[in-house]
């Protein structure tokens, strides 16, 4: 349990983000966000289930989400629909999540991306924040977080013991 925790660190998460940005968002030019857009955020998550349970989450300020989608689709930011933006940032969290998954014990499965509200520490799943990295333009950074669902891990452990 502890060894898996150590495998997902702030450093490893930052390395993944650097690789993703280099591949798809290198052309992204930082843009000054409009003050009224700053308050709006979009969060996308993928769930990891199996030998390790948790979530990978990306939270985008609205302007950063549109810029990322525009860079990936090669559209002008004004040409993008909300669906385009959600699809693009969904793919980004899918890629980041897949690379986080590769650091974890097997077997695990990755869910499809979901646009959601920010995850919270408390709750039935016993979420614990393992790593948090702000990445991208300094005025509109994307925040990546990896959460471990300790209560789900516990349930799976109990089921495993009962099966034995």
């Amino acid at each position: 349990m502890s060894s898996a925790t150590e495998l997902v660190s702030t450093e490893s998460l930052e390395e993944i983000l650097q690789e993703v940005w280099s591949a798809y968002l290198a052309a992204l030019e930082p843009g000054a966000p409009r003050p009224d857009e700053r308050v709006h955020e979009l969060t996308v998550t993928v769930a990891v289930r199996g030998a390790w349970n948790g979530y990978v989450e990306l939270t985008f300020p609205q302007p950063a989400a549109r810029l990322a989608a525009a860079a990936m689709l090669l559209f002008g930011a004004d040409e993008l629909s909300e669906r385009d933006v959600q699809d693009a940032i969904g793919e980004l969290v899918n890629i980041v999540g897949g690379n986080v998954k590769s650091l974890l014990p097997s077997p695990t499965k990755l869910s499809l991306p979901a646009v959601t509200t920010r995850l919270e520490h408390d709750g039935d799943e016993g979420l614990r924040l393992l790593a948090e990295v702000a990445y991208g333009p300094s005025d509109t950074p994307v925040v990546a977080r990896v959460w471990r669902a300790t209560a789900v891990d516990g349930q799976e452990g109990q089921e495993g013991q009962q099966a034995q």
């Binding site: 798809y24 990936m72 689709l73 090669l74 699809d87 693009a88 969904g90 793919e91």
Partner: peptide, 13 residues
């Protein structure tokens, strides 16, 4: 690919 974004990236390439 279920992501339109990724289909677009691959198709452009």
């Amino acid at each position: 690919d279920d992501s339109r974004t990724m289909r677009s990236i691959l198709s452009r390439s």
